[in-house]
Structures are given as C-alpha cells and as structure tokens.
Amino acid sequence: MTHYLLAVHGPAEMEEFGNYGSKEEMEAAFAATDAFNEKLRADGYWVFAGGLQSASTATVVDGQGETPVMTDGPYLETKEVIGGFWVVDAPDLDVALKLAAEGSKACGGKVEVRPFDGLA
C-alpha cells in the first residue's frame, strides 16, 4: 500500500460562499464531501483529511537564520492554492486516481494526486 496526498486546488480569492456560486451549492458540496469521507473510511482508504482556511490566513516562517523571520501571506502568490486535502492509503495509482475523481466531483475542485515518499 502507498500513501497518496489528494490535494484540492481552488482559487486563492474566496467569495462569500467559499469557491461556490451560492449557499445551496456550497452546502451540497459539503454534504457530498461528507458522504465521500464516509466511503473512504468504510472502504479502508482513509488516513486523514481536512479543509484549509483561505491562503490569506497563512504565515511563512523562515527559521534557517538566527532568529525566525515571519512573513504574512502564503509562500507563493498564485491564483490557485490548496484549499484542502485527503491522505489516503491505496494499493496503487489506479485506485488513488479513482478516489481522486470521486473526491473532485464531491467537493467541486481539481485534485492533484501525489505519492508520499515514506511516512515519518
């Protein structure tokens, strides 16, 4: 089994209803994502998942020098940022890609699939 990160990409600028057009769309996506999460647990793929606050709440810390340097905002100023992610444990890439397709449909965003290089 291999661990995969399924990262959801969405616009950096959040509207009133997150990345969704209306309250109803947002609630429908949340419900679909909850159902997908349940399925991941039931099928034994679940490791961890979470949604992130908007990129504007991020702080970059550089602790390589003598005193840490803090910078407000995300590391990269881009139009698309990671809005949330799943970590799944899947037998191979085909299974991970299928899960990503389901997750993408549920949450309404593009999903990047990336294998972990081992876990600590």
Binding site: T2, P91, D92, L93, P115
Partner: peptide, 13 residues
C-alpha cells in the same frame, strides 16, 4: 514512485 500498476485494466476500464 506513484505505483503505476503493472496489469491489464479491469474489463470496465
């Protein structure tokens, strides 16, 4: 690294 499987896909795929 990503474990692209080494098999013939299932009939559905």
């Amino acid at each position: 690294a990503a474990k692209v499987p080494y098999r013939v896909p299932e009939a559905a795929d």
